[in-house]
Nucleic acid binder design. Sequence first.
DNA 1: TTTTCCATGTAACTCGTTACATGATTTC
DNA 2: GAAATCATGTAACGAGTTACATGGAAAA
Lengths: 177, 177
Amino acid sequence: MERELLLLGLLRQEGMHGYQLHDFIESFMQTCVDLKKSTAYYLLDKLAQAGLVDQTEEREGNRPVRRVYHLTPAGEAMYQQLLRENLSGYQPARFAGNVGLTFLDDLPAGEAIYHLQQRRTQLAAALSQAQQAPRHKGSLQLIIEHQIMHLQAELTWLDSLVSRLETSDHGALTGSG
Amino acid sequence: MERELLLLGLLRQEGMHGYQLHDFIESFMQTCVDLKKSTAYYLLDKLAQAGLVDQTEEREGNRPVRRVYHLTPAGEAMYQQLLRENLSGYQPARFAGNVGLTFLDDLPAGEAIYHLQQRRTQLAAALSQAQQAPRHKGSLQLIIEHQIMHLQAELTWLDSLVSRLETSDHGALTGSG
DNA sequence: TTTTCCATGTAACTCGTTACATGATTTC
DNA sequence: GAAATCATGTAACGAGTTACATGGAAAA
């Protein structure tokens, strides 16, 4: 339900059409959320069918019609509920990259280090991208801060893992650390 | 492909049947991976059809047949490739709980704090569960360490957020922190 | 004896992605 | 005139979950 919450929350601030919504998320929340264009349309349709938003059609010149969505009272109620549910629950993050770590010692230390350094490069890039993200008013800024905190922690951890591998006395991985 | 990598990596260490595999993951990796029983069977079937594992049927007494899976040479090759791909890439984590934070200032500070403290309780529980996880040999231990690091960072961050809200002079959220 | 554990699977479904299709308009 | 942007959508697919179905064995 996070995606629904996201759309409802944004539409609550101001009416928007699908393209605009996707654009906003891509430009300002790209570090933390990823919502494909078709998914946005699909979701808006679903929200509309559920009576949580309604459409008003706009047109400028000869362009394709823009369906601008606004919250209905039911949508507002649902938003209030979803927001509280989201805030008061902890949803564990999933780390796809950890599966490889499970089997790290199936590789010779040298090669493990090499691959992890590739990973490090991408991680560092993600961090500096997050750090350069434009500052936002209100709590939108929070998720950027969170993202930066998270990426910094990941980077530090990865570095400590690599240096443990480098000084590998073959007990380094499981050593008390 | 992480789930496939996970299964291949475990099966490489020793032949196992679906139930056993699911059991192992649930008991020893529950803090980081979640793989439903049906998904395990489904995936094993897919791997078998792709020729990456083969089955040998075992039976004990009158119990249902156990299909024990082993890596084939093709499976071993695939494993080697997937492992390197996984290690050398960075796959961003997704934080479903962040969507709510985006709209945190739609709630009065008091209520926001209340909900975040609910979240904190669950987070702290997850942390202590991870801390009590049995110690493992080899790099399996790495993902538990990583999980603990991650949960600690989350907890610290959440606490700092709550205390910013508590001393809320209404600029606290976006203040230079 | 009833519940839990062992062991497997199928069918229906949801969610989201990919790839495709359309067509106007603005920018280079 | 070509390319990018604005604006919408559909069809097909894939991954994974839920709920259901089966049945023997062990434990309570």
